[in-house]
Design a protein around this nucleic acid. Structure first.
Length: 431
RNA sequence: GCGGGUUUAGCUCAGUUGGUUAGAGCGUCGGGUUGUGGUUCCGAAGGUCGUGGGUUCGAUCCCCAUAACUCGCCCCA
């Protein structure tokens, strides 16, 4: 029996060309996060299982994590998200941090799921969080970072929409406006989350079943039909503090050019630790019409570690869904080989060319050499396939004269230049 | 966890109503062209037909199981 060459279920091999794409995707995330003043951090891949039990349900820990006992009998879990870890880190230095704290990370995460489009077992997720700002300024900044990343990928505003809602407003709506009992809030939210996926009759039955409030249906449908329009909310909801906050937030977006942000009261983000404003970015392409990523405010998590709570807003952006988005919209750039120059040997001069290679590398150039001994046309073909931008032809003639022919494979231009100009020539032409 | 689809060469896929040596295009490698590719021509290599079992004189094909991939559902921190 031979070993399989396939990677583990739901995990990917990153061949150099795949890794290059990943590096590009992460590079954009990194540079945008840094441009907003965020600093990179990391945490262990393994966490005590209790960390996830504390805030999540037992079910999630049991069914969707890689959990096992270490040699000391401790239950440990491979991290499934970064939020508990970063909350722990902030809590650990609650008193000494300089607020507002702006942190980001791109951790590798594992979830025991059935793989499907946009969802694997091993994935990476950009996490961007701001700690210590209670007002909507933090919500605005976090959503701006998310939007700037999309813009940096080259996405236009008609490719995606940023939906905004508020957990506070939603809960107030359910309990006070619709008159549903508080203990039924979470089931109602869950149902509301799926309203666009099911038909009206089905929804009505389930709604009555859960809430026992059939008389509230008309009010709810009225809300849902106008769910995108903040101004059309009934007066009772406009009187709530969240209305003014959302209004201010939308004004800020308008002012900063984020014109594809819209209010949507049916946006719930599942049922987790979010406490106030939540947002979710959706792909508008018909063939990939799905949620891309999201986030929101979670003021309660840091406080779980026995310190004073810290107001927090953050989001997580997964590499799998964002790559699908970029592919769908043809936004992935053509990436050249990381190596700047490939030296082709037109005769057996491997030994004689070494001093030149050393010199070029000392000048900061990355240089590969085709040492296969094949004919020059084959070497050139391989260089094109590998994605090199420049090749240098070297034979006895060149070594003797000190003049080399360099070729730009993108535009087929050739030039003959002395050795000492090669590095400058490439670096000056680099984008 | 539940249901559907798929699995034949490195890739994309034909095919055999069950019968000897399983095909194409692309790609790879070599040559025509002893110093120039992304457009040519010629040739070659490469497959226990996903894996295990069953039916059969005989299975890549039929049956069962299993795995992987994939699309939905559940869930989505």
């Amino acid at each position: 029996m031979s070993l399989s060459t396939q990677p583990y279920k739901g995990a990917r091999d990153f061949y150099p060309e795949d890794k290059q794409v990943q590096n590009y995707i992460f590079g954009v995330m990194r540079s945008v996060a840094k441009s907003y003043g965020y600093q990179e951090y990391d945490a262990p891949i393994l966490e005590p299982t209790d960390l996830y039990r504390a805030k999540g349900s037992e079910e999630i820990v049991n069914e969707q994590t890689y959990t096992f006992e270490d040699r000391g009998g401790r239950s440990v879990t491979i991290r499934t998200e970064m939020t508990p870890s970063v909350s722990r880190m902030v809590a650990g230095r609650r008193q000494e941090l300089a607020y507002p704290v702006r942190w980001f990370s791109i951790p590798g995460l594992w979830r025991y799921e059935r793989p499907q489009r946009g969802r694997l077992r091993e994935f990476w997720q950009l996490n961007v969080d701001i700690f210590g700002v209670p007002g909507i300024e933090a919500d605005h900044e976090i959503i701006s970072v998310a939007d700037s990343i999309m813009q940096a990928y080259g996405a236009s505003r008609d490719m995606y929409v940023i939906k905004i809602s508020s957990r506070k407003l939603l809960e107030f709506t359910i309990t006070d406006y619709l008159g549903i009992e508080p203990e039924k809030v979470s089931d109602t939210i869950r149902l509301l989350d799926r309203v666009h996926k099911m038909d009206k009759l089905d929804f009505s039955h389930k709604f009555n079943e859960i809430t026992n409030k059939p008389e509230s249906q008309d009010k709810l449908w009225d809300l849902i039909e106008n769910c995108n329009n903040l101004d059309r909310l009934p007066q009772e909801l406009k009187a709530h503090d969240s209305y003014k906050e959302l209004k201010d937030l939308m004004r800020l977006f308008a002012k900063t050019g984020i014109l594809n942000a819209e209010f949507d009261i049916t946006l719930t983000r599942g049922f987790d630790y979010y406490t106030d404003v939540v947002f979710e970015v959706f792909d508008l392409a018909p063939e990939n019409n799905r949620s891309l990523f999201g986030g929101g405010r979670y003021d309660g998590l840091v406080g779980l570690f026995g310190v004073e709570p810290v107001p927090t807003v953050g989001f997580g952006m997964g590499d799998v869904t964002i790559k699908d988005f970029l592919e769908t919209h043809k936004l992935l750039p053509k990436l050249l080989h990381d190596t700047q120059l490939c030296v082709l040997l037109v005769s057996e001069v491997y030994a004689a060319v070494q001093p030149l290679l050393g010199e070029l590398r000392a000048q900061g150039l990355s240089v590969a050499v085709d040492s296969s001994g094949r004919k020059i046309d084959k070497q050139l073909k391989s260089a094109v396939k590998a994605g090199y931008q420049y090749v240098l032809f070297v034979g006895e003639q060149e070594l003797e004269s000190g003049e080399y022919k360099i070729k730009n494979l993108e535009n087929s231009q050739e030039r003959v230049i002395p050795a000492y100009e090669i590095a400058n020539y490439i670096l000056n032409n680099a984008k």
